[in-house]
Computed example of a mutant assay.
Amino acid sequence: MTNNINLSIEKLPVELLHRIFDNIDAETIFFSIRSVCRLFQSVVKTFDRFILNFQSISKSNFYKLCRSIDPKNVISLTLSNEIPKSNQIFWSISLVYFQQFTRLRSITFHDIDEAQFYTNNLTSICFLQLTSLTIKNLCQTIDEFQSFLLLTPSLTYLKCINGRNMIDGKRWEQFIEQNLFQLDKFEFYFHERRSITEQPYTDLELIIDSFRTSFWIEKKKWFVTCEYDMSSPETIYLYTIPICQSYMNYVSKSETNSLSTYSMIMNNDSSIISKTSSLKFTLNKSLANDIQEKKVTTNHRLFPKVTKLSLQFQKDWPIGIV
């Protein structure tokens, strides 16, 4: 006796289809899945967890999505300057459009400059429901950025790359304690150019001391590293561990001076670069010495998430070292 089982995706509950949609980008859902049949049109129409990524989208698709997807059904939004025309279209309607995102939980800005924040009146919108904010290639000063953060009091996750005059642990501590009570994770990668002093290492100590308070170490457990390349000591880098940038230019430890609030990780590259997917090596004698040392002291993969590697050879790179 055989049992005839009729397997069809159309028999799946709407809730299960919506769970599948959670892992599919909005363009695929709307332009591919929705057009399959009337049932899918209905299922897409009731979906209320769209993740809109305008980082790379055509002008026509942008208009179609804006006309067809109710902003109330969007929970995550990504904006970028990488596609100038699409970006200009979005900013032309940004204020009206943003005010309709009543269920928005996450925003990511790529290369959004200061003028776009203020010219488009984004600072007049209070994102009370927002829990996640990511800003890459931040162009604002710490004063301007913290003024914007006052509009996002419910943040639990904050990530920012670059910015101006951001290296001040005391100021960040006071601001977070007074305004971002729910912030659970804070990731950043800042760099700042300063006038060269006779004691650049002393500058590192002054900076890192502001991140050695009980707030950073015990309460939040947010650990940071501050460093400079000895070939260009005027540029100071400050970042949380692990590094939150997807791209990194790897510099040999012998060519940098660094201080960390968590000294145990200083010789553990796998902890520092666990989120980095693109890595650049400048192959020279100093790096060769680092590699030989790690062969002896390390028994695990140093860069587990790296999928793209760039190599630049210098004249002093030893022949035979791979």
Rank of each mutant, 00 (worst) to 15 (best):
N3I: 13
S8C: 08
R19Y: 07
R19M: 14
F21C: 03
D22E: 15
I29D: 03
R34H: 15
Q41F: 14
T46E: 15
R49K: 15
I51D: 15
L52H: 00
S58D: 04
S60M: 04
K64N: 00
C66L: 01
K72I: 00
L77A: 09
I107D: 05
F109K: 02
D111M: 06
D113Q: 08
D113G: 04
E114P: 03
Q116R: 13
L122H: 03
S124V: 00
T131E: 04
S132E: 12
L133C: 07
Q146R: 12
P153K: 09
L155F: 10
L158Y: 06
I161Y: 14
N162G: 08
R164V: 11
D184T: 09
Q199T: 12
T202Y: 11
E205F: 12
T213L: 13
S214M: 08
W222S: 04
E227L: 15
S231V: 09
L238K: 05
V251G: 04
S252N: 06
S252H: 05
E255V: 03
N257A: 06
N257E: 12
L259Y: 09
S260G: 10
Y262E: 11
M264V: 00
N268I: 07
T276A: 07
I291W: 01
I291P: 02
Q292K: 12
K294I: 11
T297R: 11
H300L: 05
L309T: 13
Q314K: 13
P318Y: 13
